[in-house]
Amino acid sequence: MNFAAPHIGFVLASYGAALVVVFGLILWVVLDGRARRADIRALEAAGIRRRSDRRPESGSAPDARP
């Protein structure tokens, strides 16, 4: 990559925009997931849980089928 090229600013700006969008999406997904899991944990701590899993350690993901 030639950083002295005439339009290098546009190239960098578009890669920057891609970076912002991609990381924004990743951040959104991760934070949203964390908030939802915290919600579930808070509800479970209050003694509310789904009818299907009454076991106490159901905070983790339900066990995978072999």
Partner: peptide, 10 residues
């Protein structure tokens, strides 16, 4: 020139 690199994200 270098602007063709924008294609790789666009």
């Amino acid at each position: 020139g270098e602007t063709v690199r924008i294609m790789y994200v666009h």
